[in-house]
Design a protein around this nucleic acid. Structure first.
Lengths: 213, 213
DNA sequence: GCGACCAGACCGACGCGTCGGTCTGGTCTG
DNA sequence: CAGACCAGACCGACGCGTCGGTCTGGTCGC
């Protein structure tokens, strides 16, 4: 059944990273689906195996454990989002514009891939204290990204000097919450964009035109 | 062993609600400790039983299931926090002042009872999709509280008209994140108060004096 | 002696990870 | 080029610990 054999295949994947193995890819994809649908604890390895049309053996051939494939998935998602954000940001001029672009991209990505967003935002938090560190790490990673650009905005005078670390944290939290609630309520994420845009920008002291009545 | 017997005892509890049974109370307390420490999925009924110095029989006499005691715990915590907030709020004059008071109280409570905060903010999210509703419900409940006062602030002209629903959501998210991260980093929660205070108030268009350099 | 209350042995399902085994495709040799 | 040989991807039944929940047998107050 067309099994990929070599690890060092020549064909490129959708996003840079070469496909190491079709089976491995199938497992990852299935895991993503199932985790998104049933949550970490609600998902069994057998579920993933079934959804991937592979086998238990294949699973443990490629991944050390259920936890292992999950962390793997997390990393992959983070990288994708970060790459998307960085890419969208570099075309913008000025700290504030970059920050705005990042905000828009994050919302767009979350909106387009709700299952991914669910994993990153919800399921990653559902791992229990042992893994809490990994979740906090993710948040901090994004916060650092935002903080960097906020600091730049401060430097170029777009916004007043302030505790950008706290601001970045608050932003992450706010975005997280809005996305989560909107998703749960079946609302269109992009519809919330103007509101949070205003909210967030104002929070750091940027001058914004009111868009809300 | 000094067992409380009657369900309708006359003695008052710490906070209004009468203690229905000492054993029941012990179980609840133990559950709180253990859940806070190990998370929902990381906690076994036997853990709770052991920590409570009671027995499996007692546990299932008072609670229908592990899930049952957890939900019970959640309700109790929410009510406590809400009561605290409402109490602190009623003494304040003006929408904005009330909102500020609420913010301070939430931070204080979270700071003083980190274990509780952990359960409300983190563990409640760690239940998986089935319980997601309950978590969202909690957040919405608090959001509604905030929104109410924001609307009042709008009415009395302290802040401009805006999408207060979105604002309330964003606030919850921001607070949640700051508390979570601070707790994880071992930072003093109250130290973050000025920063988020400024951030949040500014976000809704309130005029604030800069406290940060 | 009845019923509320509790102790703790026990049950059974469930799910992770293992392990012996198969199958495919490549390589080496005569 | 046929056939022996091999690497390692892949399969799936099963072992075995874990854990929520049950059940029987008290004990104590009324």
């Amino acid at each position: 059944m067309a099994r990929g054999s070599a690890t060092g295949s020549t064909e490129g994947a959708a996003l840079r990273r070469p496909i190491e193995s079709v089976t491995r890819e199938r497992l990852l994809q299935a895991a993503m689906d199932v985790f998104a649908q049933h949550g970490y604890h609600g998902t069994t390895v057998d579920d993933i195996v079934a959804a991937s049309q592979t086998s238990k053996g294949a699973f443990y051939h490629y991944f050390p454990s259920k936890q292992g494939i999950f962390l793997n998935l997390l990393d992959r998602l983070i990288e994708m989002v970060e790459a998307g954000v960085e890419g969208a940001i570099e075309h913008e001029e000025g700290g504030l514009a970059k920050v705005e672009a990042a905000l828009r991209v994050v919302l767009e990505v979350a909106s387009a891939h709700q299952d991914l967003a669910r994993i990153l935002l919800i399921e990653a938090a559902a791992l229990g204290p042992e893994f809490e560190q990994s979740r906090l790490g993710i948040h901090r990673r994004f916060a650092a990204l935002i903080q960097r650009h906020l600091d730049r905005a401060v430097a170029d005078g777009s916004i007043p000097a302030q505790d950008s670390r706290a601001a970045a944290m608050a932003w992450i939290g706010a975005i997280n919450e809005v996305v989560t609630q909107d998703m749960a309520a079946g609302r269109d994420l992009m519809a919330s964009l103007p509101a949070i845009r205003t909210l967030l920008l104002r929070s750091v002291g940027a001058r914004v035109a009111d868009e809300t009545a």
